[in-house]
């Protein structure tokens, strides 16, 4: 799975689905915050997931829309932090 796919799956299954919200298809560039798909608690959950899954450190200063407002931006941020996706378990 690509970083984009991993992030999308997390957002869809862990943040959007339990909230019951009807959000349309999440494109790579869909704004996650301007339309309140994710709130601050979801943001912290997402940051913790990225740290765990990709072995990166997300500081408070990293928690800005430039890094988190879309799946594409998150993937770019993970790459810039040197994140490595673990090999998928078959």
């Amino acid at each position: 799975m690509s970083v984009e796919e991993v992030v999308k799956e997390f957002i869809t299954t862990e943040i959007v689905a339990p909230s019951g919200r009807e959000v349309g298809e999440l494109g790579l560039d869909t704004s996650l915050f301007r339309t309140s798909v994710i709130d601050s608690f979801g943001l912290f959950a997402l940051a913790a997931f990225l740290e765990d899954r990709f072995g990166i450190k997300v500081g408070d200063e990293d928690l800005v829309p430039e890094n988190f407002d879309s799946i594409a931006r998150i993937a770019h941020f993970v790459a810039a932090k040197g994140g490595v996706a673990p090999v998928d378990q078959a």
């Binding site: 915050f33 339309t35 709130d39 601050s40 943001l43 408070d60 800005v64 407002d69």
Partner: peptide
């Protein structure tokens, strides 16, 4: 603004 609402630093 909604766009920064979730971001404490912003």
């Amino acid at each position: 603004p909604e766009a920064i609402r979730a971001f404490p630093v912003r």
